[in-house]
Each structure stands twice: as C-alpha cells, then as structure tokens.
Design a binder for these strands. Sequence first.
RNA 1: GGUCCGGUAGCUCAGCUGGAUAGAGCAUCAGCCUUCUAAGCUGAGGGUCAUUGGUUCGAAUCCAAUCCGGAUCACCA
Length: 593
Amino acid sequence: MSITTTIQSAVIAAIEKIYQHSFNEKDFQVNQTKPEFEGDYTVVLFSLLKPLQQSPNALGTALGTWLTEQYPAVFSGFNIIKGFLNFTISDAFWYGVLNENYQNKDYGRKPDNGTTIVVEYSSPNTNKPLHLGHLRNNFLGWSISEILKAEGYRVVKTCIANDRGIHICKSMVAWQKFANGATPQSAGLKGDHFVGDYYVLFGSTHKKETEALMAEGMSRELAEKEAPIMKAAQQMLVDWEAGKPEVIRLWKMMNAWVYEGFDVTYKRIGSDFDKTYYESDTYLLGKQLVEEGLQKGVFFRKEDNSVWVDLTADGLDEKIVQRKDGTAVYITQDIGLAVEKYKAYHYQQSIYVVGDEQNYHFQVLQLICRKLQLPSSEGIYHLSYGMVELPSGRMKTREGTVVDADDIMDEMTKVAAQKTEELGKVKDFTPEELHRLYDIIGLGALKFFILRVDPKKRMIFNPEESIDFHGFTASFVQFSHARAKAILRHQKPDPEFPTEQTEPLLPLEKELLILLEKYPAIIQQAAAEHNPSVIVIYCYELAKTFNSFVTEHRVLQAESENKKQLRLRLCRFSSLVIASGMGLTGIAVPERM
RNA sequence: GGUCCGGUAGCUCAGCUGGAUAGAGCAUCAGCCUUCUAAGCUGAGGGUCAUUGGUUCGAAUCCAAUCCGGAUCACCA
C-alpha cells in the first residue's frame, strides 16, 4: 500500500472512530507537503470541516494526535497551519521502503491481472519511409504497451499495414514508367526510401501533367483527374482488385522492398508487434456487417444503392458505410477489423494509437459498433495524439520539409558520438561498445524529447533543442544512472547489514525515498491516463534529486558505516528505478557514458 | 457554420479529479571540478496562467461568454 493510500485510510478510520462519520478517499485530499512547510505529507482539512462541524485546529489536532498514537511506525509528528494538517512520516517507514525494495528489479510492476488489452500502433503506409510523425506514434504505442504490461495487463501489440489502395498504386505506376528496372540494390537505397522516391516522382509528374492540361483550358479539378499518370494509377487499382498477375507481382515486389526497409527502422527504434494485419487481407472485412446493420435497421440504403448510417441524433452527420458499387469504405473495414480482433483476443480494451486528425473517425467507429451491439464496442479507446510540427510550421511533403525518421536518428547518434568524444570518458570502449553507446544516447534523446510531451497536445520539434544533452533530456537521466553505477562499481550495498537504523535521514535522502516510494503510483497513473510523459517527467525528477544527493553527500566516504550502507542502497534503488522507468519508454540507460 | 482540442516565463513544456507564495528545462547573469562521472551542482532575474464574468472559504484548475490558434465535418485512407 502506498503512503498516500495509507494516510487516506488512516484518516478515514480515525474520523470513523472519533466522530462516527464515514468518508471515502475522494472526500479529501492528501498531497505532498510544500517544501516551505514542515512535514512530508499533508491532509487538506477544508472539505471535512463543514460535515463534521469542526474548526481546522480542532479537527487537525484530533486527527494528528490519533494518527501519531495509533500508527507510531508511520507518523512521527504533525503540525497544523490554517486548514492544512502536515504529517512528518517516520524515518522507520522510509527505511522500510528502502530495505524492502532496493534490490527488487520488478519494483512498481503489478502481477498479471488476467485482462487483455490490444494496442494498435505504427500502422504505416507502404509507399514511403517513416517520418517524425510516425516516430511519435511508434514511441507512444510501444511505451503505452509496456506501461500497461507493468500495470498487470496482458498486452497484444498489433499493427495494420496499409498496403493497398490508390497511394500504393501511385508509386507502382511511377516505378513502372521511370525506373527502367532499377531496384533498391542497384540504386544503393533502403527499400522504403527507394519506393518513396517514386511516390514523390508520381507527385511531380502528376503536377506537370495537370498544368499542361490546364494550359489547354481544362479546369484544375478535371485536369487532376484526367492527367495520364493518374488515370494509369486508377487503372492499376482496378487491375489490382481484379488480381491481374503482373500487377500483383509488381505490388508484391515493391511492398517487399518497403518491408525490408521498415524492418531496419523498426529494429532500430525498438518497435515490435505480436500481430500484423494487412489491409490487403482485411479490406473486405465488414461487408457482412453492412448486411447485418441493414437488417437491424441501424443502416439504410439510398436510391443509388449506397448504404448509410444516420448519426445526426448523436450530434454527428450521416456517414456512408458502403459505396453504391458495393465496395467497402475505410470505416467499414475498421468495424470489421474490430470484430476480428475481438474474436481473436477477447480484449477488455482496444487502444488505437492514431493522430488526432482522426478523432471524428473514431467517434463514428465506436458509435456504429455500439449501434450494431458488437461486443467489441465498449473497449474502443482512441489514443489520440497531436501533430508534430517544426518551428517553421507543419511538415509538408511538397515543400520537402518532412523530417525523415532514419535521417533524424542518424543525426542524433552522430551528435551523440561527437559529444561523447569531446568528453573523452569512455576511451577504453571497443568500437562495438561505442556504437552501442551512441545509439543509446542519440535514440534516447529523440524518444525522450518526443515522449516528454502530453500525447494529446501537438508539439513543436526543434531539431536543435532535441539534440541538446543538458537539462530536461534523456542524457541527463542516463548520466545520473551511470553516476550511480560508477559508485556501485566501487562498492555494492551489503545485504547483511542490519536494517534497523537510528541515524535520522537527511533532507535529500528522504526526498529521494519519497520519490522512489511514488514509483508504483506513477506507473498506475501513466497507465490510467495512457500517458508516457508521466513516466518521463518522473524519471527526470528522480534523476535530478539523485544528482543533488550525490553532489551534496559522500557515499563511499560517508560519516558512518550506517550512512554509507544507506546511501549505497539509495544508489542501487535509484539506479534500478531509473532503469525501470526509462525502460517503460524504450530508452536504455548505459553503465558508463 | 457545426463539433472537438489547445492558449501558463523570451522559447519548449509541467501543473488542470479546485488548496498554502504557479514550477522545470533552454536562453541570460553570478558562483562551484587535487575528493564516488561537471552530460553535473548551487543561486539570481524573468508571469495580467488569452480576456471578461460566474460558482467557492479558496480558481491556472470547474461553468459561461468572447478573442486567438489548430483539427475535423470526403463514395481518401
């Protein structure tokens, strides 16, 4: 039980006993005491005064006295300032937290709770390489999965590859037209970049053709549709759906190139999936659901044979679920896939890590599933995240301002290498060890920079700031870990050393313990809010406090053997929690840097 | 126009299930390396929490309106 819940239940019990009045934990607040006041945790009394007909001082004194008498092992003192009842938590309690957990690698993790959560993330288009926006998606999806696992859930990481459709045909047509049989190997390019180049080439060719037609007097709208290369792409889509062998062959070949490229990137960023769905397999799912919806009267057919759902009563619009030619639209596929996933995993929750431009889509998706009374519907949760922008504004393909994922990672590791060499602390590392270290630092910096921001907010990615290794960064946290390990390399804590301690904790020692004690609650909060930034911010605070602690107090040359053992354990415990927390965000921590 | 999201220090962000004098980092300035890693530590300056009104003992936090920014309202995915 955490200290906060301990205090809550103790207060509830005390009031029950003294005033015969029952409250629950939501009726009053327990906060950490502000540094300018004496005490560690504070019970805010205001909300209790009226129901109990008590003055702040009377209630505070009664509670303070009762708790310190009943739980002397936890509460060692109290004071009342206005309506704030400040408790000092006994050193024995903090020693207990330390001694019970300082070697526990699973500290903060909950046991299996038997419920399954499906997380869908990444979900790339197979026509171009990943960019900065995809990185936010991947980091978030992976991290929230790990956080939920730590909280005791069984997590299934899934990915849907958007591997078919007009956008795929565009790069195929361009390759056919311009490549002369070139391959990633012959061009010396990573497969996804190679294919992406043809997607871009399609765009520029299409633009030229459109302008030529407009010069002949055609309207832009019509010219865009009539441009020969666009017509070729449309035809290729028809041929693909008809299963025309040479088109399928081309499609398979080009997708394979892209996957080869993706594999490299995924491996580097650490994304992994328990199950990958392919749109080419799933795009027909949901067709029978349209029938079902019609029978249930949830959907209706218009004169042109298209099928719709009326969501105006729910404050939304009418939404098409099947085209007049009988083909499925995006939303219908998603309904089908939701059913498919439910059949496979019987999830309690199904999280979709998708950008906030699709908020409306997911609102519609859940509403339709609910109307169809699908068991999958209630668990649908859209983990919506904001767009990643540059200081100059939105990334635009046309203006070439898209930050490529591979490029930015190369840049980060390069700068990490430069900085590391400048500092010259790891001159004895082998080339392999150095390479590994640069990756840890460079990628860590990138992940930290992106995950530190609340997912639902859109964020500005400033390449110069992201590459900084000072302050609120991964390097700072990693450095603190390496520092703890440096001390522990000299001497490890002695597990046999008696745990009964008499020396009072110094402020920084206690501050560290208060933070460390909070870690399980932090994981719980991050999981409940679907928000990895909670973990990131916590790790930073912990690292910061640890750095102050280490600067202020000698560990190996401590005042006494008691203090030395205490501090060695604090080093061990802190390094463990830092590694654990950073691990939940996919950021590795080095032994040395 | 409808719906949704955001607006906190020069910049990037915390704090938002109401609580004490609103916090970090960057940038600026001043100190600290014969002592366990200075990718560090200590300190200073910097705020009309978009605006106005309301609820409350108490509002950055809740409610309403307004202003500003963004997303979305496709037989695209």
